[in-house]
Simulated scan of single mutants.
Amino acid sequence: MLPQRVESLNHAHRERLAYIDFRLYFMGEIGRPDLTGRFGVAPAGATRDLALYRKIAPQNIEFDGSSKVYRIGKDFAPIFEHGPHRVLSALSLGFGDGVNGESHPLLPCESPAALSSPRMDVLAPICRAIHAKRPVAIRYHSISSGESERVIVPFALVDTGLRWQVRAFDRKTGEFRDFVITRIEVPKMLDEEAQANERPDNDIQWTRIVEIELVPHPDQPRPEVTARDYNFTGGMLALKLRAATAGYMLRRWSVDCSPDHSLRGSEYRLWLKDHLALYGVKNALLAPGYTVSPMADS
């Protein structure tokens, strides 16, 4: 809950105060040049922002006159909520606004290189079509059927951890499918609206929510460390996933989905407690160790 005085400020002002809060919390200090460089405000404006923050949360910030830098207070408590994904993105990639294309990590960080990234001239029209709820004519390269011309009705982007895909209705097959964005060429948004049967509320795999429970792998040592790594509650991690993405996510997380936890390897720290939770999930075969249960088929 933000202090009432912060709530009453305009969005731009709150953004600058949140940045002060962030820099103090994760970097331990902030100076006027940090604000002027990030937001383009005049030095006098930066001084006013720092003074206001100090008035709202005096325990959070102390002025170091020798270096003219504001440092984190001994009784610091953040006044903004800083989500872990945003924080880690900012620390590793920097605060970029997309104008000059330059951003630098705030701290030394290493993360896996992206081996597959979509072209912007392909991604942009796909995004416009999602926003406008319009079909798109594309040329698509499939491993199974080669090159083909298609019309799809996209409605969501999906990050599988290995590549970016778009979930869409495929007019060629009459089904909802995943299309790898790097395999799409010359997308052209059509000047027509999607039909009722092409909308996402008719995609059963997309609208179905699968509830799963992950537990420490029974054949791996130190289950208490696994519970700590994944912030278990009550000895397990309960998740809700879309059926359309479940197989991708379980593969990304290296979850042993075999009924008898038979997969070996240090990467399998987690086990799917009930593999029948994936029954009817089309991409379940992507999940490590998953096989269709004979009992479920009977």
Score class of each variant (00 low, 15 high):
I79C: 07
G83I: 03
L106A: 03
G98A: 07
A90T: 12
F95Q: 01
M120I: 13
A90I: 10
S111Y: 12
F76A: 02
G83S: 09
H85F: 07
S92P: 02
A77Q: 13
L93Y: 12
G101Q: 03
H104P: 01
S103P: 00
E81Y: 12
S117I: 11
L91D: 03
H85T: 05
G94N: 09
L93R: 12
S111L: 12
P112S: 10
S111E: 09
D97R: 04
L115N: 14
F95H: 04
L93N: 08
R86S: 06
S117G: 09
A114Q: 12
A113F: 12
H104M: 15
H85I: 14
S92K: 02
P118I: 02
S103A: 14
D75W: 05
E110H: 09
E110S: 15
P108W: 13
R119N: 09
L88I: 06
P84I: 13
G96A: 05
S89K: 00
H104R: 14
G101E: 04
G73A: 07
M120C: 00
P105E: 14
V87E: 07
D75N: 12
L93D: 08
E102V: 14
F95E: 06
R119T: 10
S116H: 08
C109S: 15
D97M: 05
S92F: 06
S117R: 10
S116Y: 12
A90D: 08
F76I: 08
E81V: 15
L107G: 01
H82S: 06
